[in-house]
C-alpha cells in the first residue's frame, strides 16, 4: 500500500496537478485564472512524460563510456514540442483575453455574459 503511494509519488503529483489545473479551467470565472489552470494542466502532462522516461539509475544520454544506463530521451524531445504547443495556446488565449477586455471592459466570464445580454446584439 505504502509502496504504491510513495514508490510512485511522481505519478501522484502528476494526477494532483492535472486535477488542480482541470478544476481551474472548468470552475473559475476569471479568464486569466482559466489560462493559469490550463498551463498547470498541460505542465502536469509534461511531468508525466518525463516520469515515464526515467530509467532506474540512468543518467543523461551522453556517450562517455561505451556502456552506461541512460534515461529514454525520446519523451523529453516530445515534450519540447509539447511545450511549444502549450506556449502558443497560452499566447492565443492571452491575446483573446486582451480583445475581450477591450470589447467588454471585464475579464470575469459571468460579468461578460451579463454585459452581452444587456447589450443586446453587441457591436
Amino acid at each position: 500500500m505504502i509502496e504504491t503511494i510513495l514508490g510512485k509519488y511522481n505519478y501522484w503529483i502528476y494526477i494532483a496537478l492535472m486535477m488542480i489545473g482541470f478544476y481551474a479551467m472548468v470552475a473559475k470565472e476569471n479568464l486569466i485564472k482559466k489560462v493559469i489552470g490550463m498551463s498547470i494542466f498541460q505542465t502536469a502532462v509534461f511531468l508525466f512524460y518525463v516520469s515515464i522516461a526515467k530509467v532506474k539509475g540512468g543518467t543523461a544520454p551522453i556517450e562517455w563510456h561505451h556502456s552506461h544506463l541512460y534515461d529514454n530521451p525520446l519523451p523529453h524531445t516530445l515534450m519540447l514540442t509539447g511545450i511549444v504547443v502549450s506556449v502558443s495556446t497560452t499566447a492565443v488565449a492571452l491575446a483573446l483575453i486582451i480583445r475581450i477586455y477591450k470589447a467588454y471592459g471585464s475579464i470575469e466570464e459571468d460579468r461578460v455574459l451579463v454585459l452581452e445580454k444587456e447589450g443586446g446584439k453587441g457591436e
Binding site: 479551467m25 498541460q42 475581450i100 452581452e116
Partner: peptide, 15 residues
Amino acid sequence: RRALIASFNYLILGT
C-alpha cells in the same frame, strides 16, 4: 464581439 467569447470557450475545451 461575441465571437471572442465563443473562441475563448472553444480554446479551453479544445485544449
